[in-house]
Design a protein around this nucleic acid. Structure first.
Length: 733
DNA sequence: TGAGACGCTGTTTTT
DNA sequence: CAGCGTCTCA
């Protein structure tokens, strides 16, 4: 697997970092020149003993500092196994270790680097038995957890308890909030979800069942991974000693986004040797919904007395005109600890603010500017469009496809979260952990004539048995679905043949699953089918099934397949701000900077508004040379009436002379203009069977005319869509 | 008890 | 604009 960003900004400078050819250890050549790092960075890299807190502003060389520190520690003779590097994503860890390898040597790859969750997983597979878990526990992702809540809800007959009963999504959020912030669930509900207080008893009841369900079936959700890691360290001094001994040097990235449990884990590992460095920026704390509190970073010195605090304040990323605006954004924060950033990078272009007429105009502006920039020689991969919520880019995605601009979307729904991926995974998960009822349930429901009730009955029977697959095969099924059960059982039994590689298991599963798949997703299986191919590519790289299953939950391999394709190199990036954290681009567009969109409509409380401000700060500080702020003045609501949209309050009071402003001409707020077609399609021309062409979906056939100006079309590549002729650019072929 | 059709709703953000 | 719950029929 090739490194992803390692060849980014720091690469040209990196050449000079090689002190010389490090041929032998006895030549006391330094690893790097002092001038490769500024004094603050140098201090952070070389202060190897004792607690260190690095407050690192955006673009201040935080990653560089961590990379050098890893290399430096190893060069001092520390063995790689003694270093633990905790990062926010696995990709970030891998990238750092790759870069460290480039400075020193491949020994850097032995360093254990990854997310808190991934490391917890490793440790709990080994020591989890102390807490009553077997080594083959399954990890629940968000959707799995919600599925369990649903199961419980219906088993307790709480489904129709009232229309306002909280959704599974909300319920899981409450549980997670309670765990991560260490607040009793009662208080979470009463303080934060007060409008749901009438359901408190039911919510508590669901929580108890949820906990029980997880334990009975060998399941851990994301929060359990952290909580159990902490328990392991807190309750078992021998384990703590072993782990603390192993990880003599602990490095934590993005510390501003850790929650109290994670802080406690760090404390428990490091308090015996105190060799811990955490790096972060309170102004970039954007994960409070996961329990992070930007003030935690300032508490670090209280946990570790005699902490050396180092501040990195020179920005090496953006031009001064960009920083002038980002500083103005964050200056308005109520509370912050970092100072104003400065940069020596000259740049005349002020960031631009564009008031688009409407969403279409906004998309057009972005596309035009991207094409212009591309002509100037900036590759697509050096440009990004950022937004608050993943659905904000839908319209733009169509427009980009129209202009054949290649793009990759990050954030939002992942490959591994889609229903059909979960289906395939369920078979493999049952193989790895036969206790995994959720997956069992999913599999059984795929059988024709088997619904929730029957699935439950089957499950109760086969779970008694030592050999659930054999028990399934012998299950006294009704004639109408006996064949289905047998086929399923045969397939599962065939997976147990020893020595099968993960990819051959996958192939066996898909051979069975394909007909099921085409039946249950009959309206859009062609589109979904490509995902299955992608999964196959991904699983191909794994030697262990368990590792693959864990990664689908812990490190969703969204585009890892695409990364290997050579033409994947130059793609425009569309990303949520959250997923853009830590990255940088030559040119950045931030769209939908309108009230109700960014800041998100549901952030009311002052601290939530403050987080939205930090979020905008993170977005804007991603830009190196060019930055565009865009918002549509006319917003379309569901009822197809347009209304006035205001500029984001976060931008409202930015001094005007810091920005270059441009407004699209005003329009009257009437009915939205009807799209022009090359050949305007009228109702009369349409009938079932007509072949049509859509700019994004391609060729398709009309299945049904649903009414005036609405048609149901089946596209070869994308499956079934319902289109409205006033909005879809349909052509008759 | 399961399957399919219909209409409603609501939509942050991620490990 | 899909995912969910509800309703009806087999």
């Amino acid at each position: 697997m090739r490194e992803f960003l390692a060849c980014g900004t720091l690469a040209p400078m990196q050449q000079s970092l090689f002190s010389s050819n490090k041929t032998s250890q006895d030549s006391k050549q330094p690893l790097f020149n002092r001038k490769d790092l500024n004094p603050a960075q140098y201090e952070a890299v070389t202060t190897t003993e004792g607690p260190v807190l690095v407050i690192a502003g955006a673009g201040s060389g935080k990653t560089r500092t961590l990379v050098y520190r890893v290399a430096f520690l190893l060069e001092q003779g520390i063995i790689p196994e003694n270093i633990l590097l905790l990062t926010f994503t696995r990709k970030a860890a891998q990238e750092m270790l790759n870069r460290a390898s480039a400075i020193l040597d491949d020994s850097c790859q032995q360093v254990l680097g990854g997310t808190f969750h991934a490391v917890a997983n490793l440790l709990l597979r080994r020591h989890g038995y102390k807490l009553g878990y077997t080594a083959n526990f399954s990890i629940l992702d968000q959707a799995d957890a919600q599925g369990i809540v649903n199961l419980i809800k219906s088993s307790l007959n709480l489904g129709g308890a009232g229309k306002r009963f909280p959704t599974k999504r909300l319920i899981i959020n409450m549980f997670s909030r309670s765990v991560n912030k260490n607040i009793a669930l009662e208080n979470v509900v009463l303080d934060h979800y007060n409008h749901l207080a009438e359901y408190l008893d039911e919510i508590l009841l669901i929580r108890d069942h949820y906990k029980k369900f997880k334990i009975e079936h060998g399941l851990m959700d994301y929060d359990d991974l952290l909580v159990n890691w902490k328990k392991l360290l807190a309750r078992f001094p021998d384990v703590r000693e072993e782990i603390a001994n192993r990880f003599q040097y602990v490095l934590v990235d993005e510390y501003q986004d850790t929650n109290p449990i994670q802080a406690e884990i760090v404390r428990l590992i490091a308090s015996s040797h105190n060799n811990v460095m955490v790096v972060g920026d309170d102004s970039q704390s954007i994960y409070s919904f996961r329990g992070a509190d930007f003030r935690n970073i300032m508490d670090f010195p209280k946990i570790f007395p005699n902490t050396k605090i180092i501040r990195l304040e020179e920005n090496y990323r953006s031009t001064q005109s960009i920083l002038a605006v980002t500083n103005a954004i964050i200056e308005r924060a109520e509370e912050k600890y970092t100072k104003t950033l400065f940069s020596n990078i000259a740049g005349v272009d002020k960031p631009r603010l564009f008031a688009a007429r409407n969403e279409a105009d906004q998309a057009r502006y972005v596309v035009d500017n991207i094409m212009a920039r591309h002509k100037e020689g900036v590759s697509y991969g050096e440009m990004a469009v950022l937004f608050r919520s993943s659905f904000h880019s839908f319209k733009l995605e169509l427009e980009l496809a129209n202009h054949q601009i290649p793009f990759e979307k990050r954030g939002g729904q992942k490959l591994t979260e889609s229903a059909h991926t979960k289906d395939v995974l369920a078979y493999l998960r049952v193989l790895a952990n036969p206790q995994d009822n959720l997956s069992w349930n999913r599999i059984l429901l795929q059988l024709e004539k088997v619904g929730p009730k029957t699935a439950q009955t089957i499950l109760n029977t086969i779970k008694q048995n030592e050999e659930p697959f054999t028990a399934l095969k012998n299950y006294p099924a009704r004639n109408s679905w006996k064949k289905g059960v047998e086929n399923l059982a045969d397939m599962l039994l065939s997976l147990q043949k020893p020595g099968l590689s993960p990819v051959s298991l996958f192939d066996l599963v898909v051979e069975y699953y394909r007909p099921v798949f085409e039946r249950i997703y009959h309206d859009d299986y062609p589109r979904r089918s490509r995902d299955l191919d992608q999964i196959r590519d991904i699983i191909n790289g794994y030697a262990s099934l368990q590792a693959f299953i864990d990664d689908t939950a812990l490190d969703p391999p969204e585009s890892r397949g695409a990364e290997n394709l050579s033409e994947a190199a130059d793609k425009l990036i569309l990303s949520t701000v959250h997923s853009a954290k830590g990255l940088e681009w030559d040119t950045v567009f931030i769209i939908h900077l309108a009230e109700g969109k960014f800041p998100a409509a549901q952030s009311h409380l002052p601290e939530e508004q403050e987080e939205e401000r930090r979020l905008l700060y993170v977005a804007a500080t991603r830009a190196k040379k060019e930055l565009h702020f865009i918002y549509p003045r006319e917003v379309m609501s569901a009822d197809r009436l347009s209304s006035l949209g205001r500029i984001s309050p976060l931008l409202e009071d930015i001094p005007h002379d810091l920005l270059r402003q441009k407004n699209a001409p005003r329009t009257s707020f009437s009915q939205p203009a009807i799209q022009r077609f090359k050949k305007k399609v009228t109702d009369g021309e349409l009938a079932a069977g007509t072949t049509v062409h859509h700019p994004f979906f391609g060729e398709g056939k009309i299945e049904k005319v649903l009414g005036p100006r609405r048609v149901d079309v089946f596209f070869q590549r994308h499956g079934r869509k319902i289109l409205h002729l006033d909005y879809a650019k349909l052509e008759i072929l």
